[in-house]
Design a protein around this nucleic acid. Structure first.
Lengths: 116, 116
DNA sequence: TACCATTGCGCAATCC
DNA sequence: TGGATTGCGCAATGGT
């Protein structure tokens, strides 16, 4: 079985293609290409491994960040409840910007107990 | 150039290896293997593409989560400052659990303006 | 034109 | 027994 027996090729069954006279030149060329192929494949494997590692790293970071968001959200909810509870008898909170405060209290905070 | 010319082989230069008598059986086996190889490589390519996509998805999620953490941290810092400002003249905050509150106020909050 | 890198493909060994 | 993987070489092709 010869590799050259493969169908999808041009009319070049035997002998030199362009220059190479079947001998050492051809062999050298093949050897160099084989080395190049090895380098290329090695490189590709490393890249694949790095990608896999990247996925794992990102998954970990993601998990940590999600936990952090959950914790912060819970804390924020707690503090907001505290504020709302004081909303009635507060007359001195005017030291701070009321607008931003109100906006803050209305934001993304599902009354703390909504979290597990 | 014959594939069989490769050096790292056993002393089996020609003729049947085990059973195959060089003919149709061998050819059928080769063809089936070639198909299997194609399937395997196709599968591997798909897996690689999926992994790449996974990396991009995770990177996006990560960015969003980091922004969320930053926002929440900033808000928390703001509310905590508000609390601390009231710390002096507060006598009615006793409605809530003081311990947890104190703990909360001391946590992970770099006085809001520490953020860009 | 020469050269290295990539890639599709087949073979054979090996894994399962 | 047989498909799935994998290492390897060949040749075509892409990119300088």
């Amino acid at each position: 079985m010869t590799v050259s027996d493969m169908a999808p090729k041009r009319g070049k069954p035997r002998k030199e293609m362009d220059s190479e006279e079947d001998g050492d030149e051809y062999r050298k060329k093949r050897d160099r290409n084989n080395m190049a192929v090895k380098r290329s494949r090695q490189k590709s494997k490393i890249k694949t491994a790095e990608t896999m590692h990247r996925v794992n790293t990102l998954k970990s970071e993601n998990t940590i960040l999600q936990e952090k968001v959950k914790t912060l959200t819970k804390e924020l909810g707690f503090l907001k409840e505290l504020f709302l509870a004081h909303a009635g008898n507060s007359a001195d909170k005017s030291k701070f910007e009321d607008v931003d405060l109100q906006q803050l209290l209305g934001e993304d905070t599902p009354s703390s107990d909504a979290m597990k």
